Amino acid sequence: MEQSVTLVGVIFSIHRNDQQQSIQLDGIDQFGLIVHIDSDTELLCAHGKAISFDELEISMVVKVEHPLALTMSIPPQTYAYQVMVLQS
Rank of each mutant, 00 (worst) to 15 (best):
V61S: 03
V61W: 00
F53Y: 12
L43M: 00
D18G: 11
T6D: 07
T78R: 06
Q24T: 12
E55A: 06
T6K: 10
E55R: 06
Q77H: 06
E55D: 12
P75Q: 05
Y79C: 05
H47C: 09
A69H: 12
P76F: 01
F12A: 07
T71P: 01
T41A: 03
V8S: 05
S59C: 15
L86H: 00
K63I: 10
C45H: 15
T71I: 02
I34N: 12
Q87F: 08
C45E: 14
L7R: 11
V10K: 15
Q82R: 14
V5F: 09
A46D: 01
S52W: 02
E65Q: 15
Q20P: 04
S59K: 15
A50G: 08
P75G: 08
I23N: 02
M60V: 10
D26W: 03
I51Q: 01
Y81V: 01
H36S: 14
F31A: 14
E42L: 13
L43P: 01
V62K: 03
S52A: 07
H66S: 02
L86C: 04
A46W: 00
E2G: 02
Q20W: 11
S88A: 14
G27R: 00
P76S: 02
V35C: 08
M60W: 12
P75T: 07
L70P: 04
L33I: 10
I23T: 05
P76G: 02
S39F: 00
C45L: 12
I58G: 02
A46T: 01
L25Q: 12
D29V: 01
N17T: 06
M1S: 10
I14D: 08
Q19I: 09
E42S: 10
E57T: 09
M1Q: 08
P76K: 06
F31D: 14
Q3W: 02
Q19R: 15
L86Y: 03
I37E: 11
M84A: 14
Q20I: 13
P76Q: 08
Q19N: 14
S88F: 12
L86W: 05
V64F: 10
I14R: 11
V64S: 10
K63P: 05
Y79W: 13
V8W: 03
V83N: 02
Q19S: 14
Y81D: 04
E55I: 02
M72K: 14
Q87W: 05
V5E: 15
A69F: 11
I74T: 03
S4E: 13
F31E: 14
D54Q: 13
P67Y: 11
E42N: 04
A50N: 13
I37V: 15
R16I: 10
I28Q: 08
Y81P: 00
V85H: 07
A46K: 05
E42M: 10
Q30H: 11
F31G: 07
L43K: 01
Y79F: 13
F53Q: 06
V5W: 03
I14Q: 12
M1C: 07
N17M: 10
L56W: 04
I58C: 07
P67S: 09
Y81S: 04
T41L: 01
V5P: 15
F53T: 03
D29F: 04
H15C: 02
Y79L: 13
S4F: 14
V85G: 06
A50P: 12
D18E: 14
E57P: 04
V62L: 03
P75C: 10
G48V: 07
L25P: 09
M60S: 09
L7G: 03
L25N: 10
I74Y: 02
